[in-house]
């Protein structure tokens, strides 16, 4: 990953709607309101989740 890319922009590049997912960055929740402000850094590990059918 190159510097300067926000998490919101990364989600956009992946074709994901930020309103429908939750993002964890290096095991810390990234609040939705800050997705556009937090930049992706070298070595970051992300979990991107959403709701699916389940019991």
């Amino acid at each position: 990953m190159t510097g300067g890319l926000s998490i919101a922009a990364m989600l956009g590049e992946l074709g994901l709607d930020p309103k429908k997912v939750a993002v964890e960055r290096n095991l810390e929740i990234v609040p939705r309101g800050t997705l556009a402000d937090v930049e992706v850094a070298e070595g970051d590990a992300f979990e991107i989740v959403h709701f699916v059918g389940g019991g």
Partner: peptide, 14 residues
Amino acid sequence: VTVAVRRVNISDPS
């Protein structure tokens, strides 16, 4: 309704 939380499929976001 109950729902599960799972990873998004980034290879097929549509």
